[in-house]
Each structure stands twice: as C-alpha cells, then as structure tokens.
Design a protein around this nucleic acid. Structure first.
Lengths: 230, 230
DNA sequence: GATAATCTGTTAACCGGATTACAATTCCGG
DNA sequence: CCGGAATTGTAATCCGGTTAACAGATTATC
C-alpha cells in the first residue's frame, strides 16, 4: 500500500535487516485490514492465502473441536507474524486466528511472501528461528498438558503473563491483557468453572487480586510453588 | 568419515539435491555411532552438540517429568534427522532421544551442520519444511490431548501406525514396531494399565489381535469410529 | 534351559476435573 | 442510564482415568 505501511513493516523483527529499497518491492503487495474484537482473521480449514503481520491489537491462535471446545495455542501481540509460514506448502490452516481486541494488521499473499523470503537468505534463517521458537512453545504446551494439573498450569500461565504482559506496580504485577476466565481456561486446556474456582483459591491465599477483568499478581515468585522449575 | 558414510548421508531426503562434491566437504566431519536398545542418544538438558541422522533402528523423542512420567513426541525411523535443528541457537535440549532398538546413526557437530546448511539456500528451505511438518505434528498432539479420550487417542495412534509402520497381510495390517504397552501409553499420554485394558476391549471387539508384542489390526477403518475425522 | 527381569492382565479404591444447573454480578450498546 | 448479553461464582454429581497392588505370562541373559 502506501509508503507508511512499508515503513511499519520494516519494524517487524524479521525485516529489520532488509534494506529499505528492497522492502519497497513489497509496496503494492501489502494489504491492510481491521479486524473487530471477536472476529476471525481466518478459520480452521480455510485455504492459506495470506501471511499476516499484527500491527495493533491482540490475536489468539486456537484450535476448536467438533463439540465446540477451544484450546488456545498462542496470544499474538503487535510485531508478531502469523499465518501458515511453515513449509509454506500446506494447503489448509490447521488453526484459527481470532481477534481478542480490535486489531489492525497487514497481510501479503502467501506466494509473494514465500518468494520474497526465498530470495533473501537472511529471511529464511530468521523464519527458521521463528519456527524453532514456535516448536519449543508447543512442546512446552504438550509437556504441561501431560504432566501438570490445573492449578499448576494456571500458576505457570499467570507467571509467564507477568513476564510478557504486565506493568510493574508498587503492589505487584498488573497483567495488562483483559482475559476472561474462559480465555484463561482455553490457554491451559481446562474448564471455565475450575479456572474460576482456582483463581478464587489463589485470591484467598493472597497471591493475587482480581479487579475489573484484570489480574494483579502480588508476587509472581509465590506462584512458582505450584509448578516445578522448567 | 569414510566415503561410504557420505554416500549414505546423501540418501537423506534433505541432502538429495546437494551435489556430491559439495557433500564431500562434510567428509571428515561426520561421525558414526551405535546406540544400544534403551540407551539414550542424548538426554534432556544436555548441551546440543550434535545433529543426528538415523541410518538404522528406531529412536524415540520424548520428555520426562520430575516424577518419572514420560511422553513420547515422535518415533524416528531410518532416514530421519534429529537433534536441535530449530533456530539452532538453543543451548540445551528440551527433550531426550532414546533408542528403542539397537540403532546406527551418524552425527555432525551442530555448528558445522549449521554452517553447511546456511551456505546452501536449498537446505535452509528443506529445513524450514521439516520444521513446519514438526509443528503440525506437535499441534496435533496438543489437540488430541485436549480433545480426545484414551480410546480415541489409542485408536488414532493405531490407525496411523497402520499407515506408517505396517505390513499388509491377508488378515489385516501387522504393525511392525514391537512396542510395549508402556511405550504405547507414552505415545498417547496415558497410563500403561488403561492401555492394556483398552487394547483388551479392542481385541474383544475383534478390531485387532495381539501376538508376541506385535499388533495385527484387522481393518484400520474400523478404528475410525473411535475418533472424529481430522 | 534356568532364573531374573520385564511385561501383561485385572480389579478396587480414589480423585481431579468435567458437567450441570443456577444465581449473582458486571459489562456494553443504544 | 437502562436492559439484555456476557461473565463470574458456587455447589452437587458424575465419570474417566490414575493409583496401587498383585498374579501370571513372556522375554532376556547367562
């Protein structure tokens, strides 16, 4: 699109090292898009047409079962790239991407992106790194689902949110994301009810305070007693 | 090592397109290794020194919890490559690789492999594809753990073993891998006991026959009634 | 071929968490 | 700021699967 969009794209980690005149080749290939809170960017089973760059907002990557249960694999924040980047030869998306806030993103056709990436060795390598990180994350999800019970998984989630999405306040870490109990449940593969209950227990124990759909964690280190190191 | 080793390496999918004289640069960098049944190739937390190529045998990639529970993420067969290929900047292995048969493999130091890969655009791309497939696999593991019960997970596992590791016999598909109930349990994140029980039920229903630690699946399609499509 | 080690089979007791079913609260759009 | 929608809170019930505890069968190993 416009020059400004390209300029923004350049801010994405993956493109940092690409010379600006190279980036301009993408000029007319980039599209921008608003997605309203709760609307899907794409759904499971849709053909993988685009690669997305999240500029503003919050998007979750999740999988939904036939019975309507959902498990959330990642919360994407501005600066993150998504879509089927992988081998880039997959034909259908295996997940869905849904906005959890009004979000602003731009997108490039998969083939164009693929071509661009393949003509820049550095890009291929960064992509490799991104995929590697993604593998680590999912592996951890498997391990946690298999080995930890709900309080442990929840404590671990809150602990990590403290590190990635919290403001440090005098009385603790305020998690900036406004996640419902249902969304928290989806993130750890549990039912909404038990999340409510366990959050209640954590509150009683003085580990946290819930206020207007925000969580204030008094002392993240206290949460660690619920889950083993690593 | 010797010329023959290089020749073998060339048979790995990832190296198929590399000219033979290029491959020879790896000549003295490649090491070969026997691993006895049940012995580890590497363990969780060890530094990631090598990239491995499985030439013969069977190796499982798994994670073990502090309490000694194990979940198996992949069964690797000859022709497969493993080790920390990802971004290749990880310092510790997050999994362990254990031989399930006497296995023959060769290995290259991670940095050498990395260098070699980075100097061959084609290689980086194949690596990307491998990582993409790996992501898909693990995502499926997460989905299955979260959405399916034990009979469904077991049926699905047997069904997929029929496709990847079975000989077609007149009376059904004979799964060639000799997996104990414990190993099957590790593959689906369940206890050994319930695997025994459910296998018993499947046998009663005439879905399969167990003989000397081998499974003969009468008709894989019958298993499908236990798990939803995809 | 004998003996130890590993696997399979089975069952009762237990338990974590899902389900179900509401009531109370909070939020949000007009 | 009002009314409907979404979210939270709570408790009873139910259930799949783990745990525990053995007996029997099979497989390695010397």
């Amino acid at each position: 699109m416009d020059r400004e969009t390209i300029w923004h794209l350049q801010n994405f980690n993956i493109f940092k090292a690409i010379p600006h005149d190279e980036m301009e080749r993408l000029q007319d290939m980039v599209d921008t898009d608003w997605i309203k809170n709760r609307d899907p960017v794409y759904l499971q089973g849709e053909p993988t047409t685009w690669v997305y760059f999240l500029k503003k907002g919050l998007v979750k990557l999740s999988m939904t079962s036939a019975e309507g249960k959902t498990i959330t694999v990642a919360l994407l924040k501005p600066g993150e790239i998504f879509g089927e980047l992988s081998g880039m030869d997959e034909s259908d998306t295996s997940m869905e991407a849904i906005a959890l806030e009004n979000s602003y993103l731009c997108r490039i056709r998969r083939e164009i992106f693929k071509e661009f990436v393949e003509s820049h060795t550095g890009l291929v390598l960064s992509l490799n790194k991104i995929l590697g990180l993604r593998i680590r994350r999912i592996q951890t999800a498997v391990r946690d689902l298999a080995f930890l019970d709900v309080p442990a998984r929840l404590a671990k989630l809150l602990h990590s949110l403290c590190e990635t999405d919290a403001e440090v306040k005098p009385n603790g870490h305020l998690i900036t994301l406004r996640l419902t109990h249902q969304e928290l449940a989806n993130l750890i593969g549990a039912s909404r009810e038990i999340v409510t209950t366990v959050l209640g227990r954590f509150t009683e124990e003085g580990l946290l305070v819930q206020e207007k759909r925000r969580l204030l964690i008094k002392d993240p280190r206290q949460l660690k007693k619920y889950f083993p190191d690593q």
